[in-house]
């Protein structure tokens, strides 16, 4: 609905889209994508601000003919989250003591606390995702966590649905393989 409205606004030439319009129509989408792509470590408020700062700078150059607004926004969000994750990893490595590095290894402790167990599952999920190729990681998040259809994923990534399914299959296989490696590590020798 929001996308249709945005397209109509731009195509009718009534008025060019402003930052305010884009924020109003899509800030929730951006937040959801950022939360899913970045996982628990990402500061959503910062990501949202950075994404819309980029939108503000690049909006004059964006034309509806070049693609869907959501595709463009998703790409900005994806890049922002990727840079943040990379920086976070770099910072941890930079500051890392022996204990910090050990912290990167899976912990084999399980808590009785349900919330903590859920948090651990989430952290494990993202630990597996973090080792994956960016494209497969994104596709897997959109399919498994966002429960998006192949068509919607294709529209967001600018790919054909058939291509998306190939990526989904490969991403799932890769995830399961990495997950088993992680579980074996957790179980120990």
């Amino acid at each position: 609905m929001a996308e249709a409205l945005a397209q109509t606004m731009t195509q009718t030439g009534a008025a060019p889209l402003t930052l305010d319009d884009v924020f109003r129509l899509h800030s929730k989408d951006v937040l959801r994508w950022a939360a899913r792509l970045g996982g628990p470590e990402v500061e959503l408020q910062d990501v949202l601000q950075e994404v819309f700062l980029t939108v503000h700078q690049e909006l004059p150059g964006w034309k509806p003919r070049t693609g869907k607004l959501t595709t463009w926004l998703f790409r900005i969000t994806q890049n922002t989250v990727r840079h943040r994750r990379r920086r976070e990893r770099f910072r941890r490595w930079l500051k890392g003591s022996g204990d910090d590095v050990a912290g990167e290894l899976p912990s084999n402790a399980l808590s009785a606390d349900e919330a903590l167990a859920q948090r651990q599952s989430q952290e494990r999920f993202y630990r597996v995702l973090d080792g994956m190729n960016e494209k497969y990681r994104t596709v897997l998040v959109l399919f498994e966590l966002e429960a998006m259809s192949g068509e919607d994923i294709g529209a967001l990534l600018g790919a054909k649905p058939a291509t998306v399914w190939v990526w989904v299959h490969r991403a799932r296989a890769d995830f399961l393989k990495r997950m088993q490696v992680l579980l074996e590590k957790e179980r120990g020798p």
């Binding site: 937040l31 939360a35 959503l44 966590l145 966002e146």
Partner: peptide, 9 residues
């Protein structure tokens, strides 16, 4: 399933 809904602001 443990992921739950995406967190918001």
């Amino acid at each position: 399933r443990a992921m739950g809904p995406a967190q918001g602001l």
